[in-house]
Amino acid sequence: MTIKYVFDRTIQLVLVIFIAMTVNFILPRVIPGDPVEAFLRSKMATSGGTVTFDIAKVGEEYRRKFGFDKPIWLQYAHYWNDVIHLELGVSLIHFPSKVSDQILNALPWTMGLLTASVIIAFVAGSVAGALLAWPQTPTWFTAALSPVMLLSTVPAFLLAIIMLWVFAADLRWFPGGGGFSSTHILRWNLASVRNIMYHAILPAGALVLSSLGGWALGMRALAISVLGEDYIMFAEAKGLPSRRIFLWYGMRNAMLPQVTALALTLGSVISGTVLVEAMFGYPGIGSLLFNAIATKDYFVIQGIVLMLILSLGSALFVIDMVYPLLDPRIRYN
């Protein structure tokens, strides 16, 4: 892994983030519709409908405050200035709470749920997929795995609804939402951790079950092509035990494209998590986004999108850095 490799990847990261952020800036301004207008109208609707002020004037004031009246290039400059200082504006609804505060409160919940479910689903799915491709896997395993694979065609958030119905409403084994019990005070102790885990099982379960099949199928295809390679045949000719060939000659080589697949689908993994959180009312970015959409809290939405772009870009960068450790052909180029 050379300095040039790291440098190249860093430049790529910066370039891609730049383009994505510019798109994030341009897109809302290009599409017709004014957030301030919509916001004012909704405020009026909820306050009984009596108009005691000049809407246009109030609108003007809001626009000046939020910089919508300046020329576009100046807005762009301010946009980047704000981004660098991580100044994401204030929430329209929960005025004057800052957007960055709201996001920082919600972030740990999402990170926990996301990393746990992705790791479990990716590892379990990949191993299951490789076993599906291995000729010596017992048939009961293949049979037992098929219903799980079928589940993977159901989108995560719909699976979430089903699980809510079955496990929360019907059987009442698990709570129907939230990150922790409303009567529980969060502290750094075991009781809190258990409470959080208890509430996280259903959302995590929905995420894991819906993505397991996808990982397994992808890995199965990769493992099938790896198992047809000459070095597998030579490994058998060496008289190596099956397990060793499966792990060190088969899976080890099939993991490489599988990790690439993880990098490519991280975007949709995040989307799935956001929707599942919204279904469960889990206090992460997902619920934040859901509520912001429902109340048309424009800056919160934009701030969350920004943060998602940045985190996805960084995650891809990290995977790019990890890849040479897995594949010596890239390491010693």
Binding site: L15, V16, I17, I19, A20, V23, N24, L27, P28, I31, P32, G33, P35, L264, G267, S268, I270, S271, V274, L275, L289, I293, K296, Y298, I301, Q302, I304, V305, L308, I309, L312, G313, L316
Partner: peptide, 18 residues
């Protein structure tokens, strides 16, 4: 670059505006 943006985010922004 478009792949770096979580698709749901872009879609949400567009849908909110239209």
């Amino acid at each position: 670059s478009l792949m770096t943006v979580p698709s749901i985010a872009i879609l949400i922004i567009i849908s909110t505006k239209v």
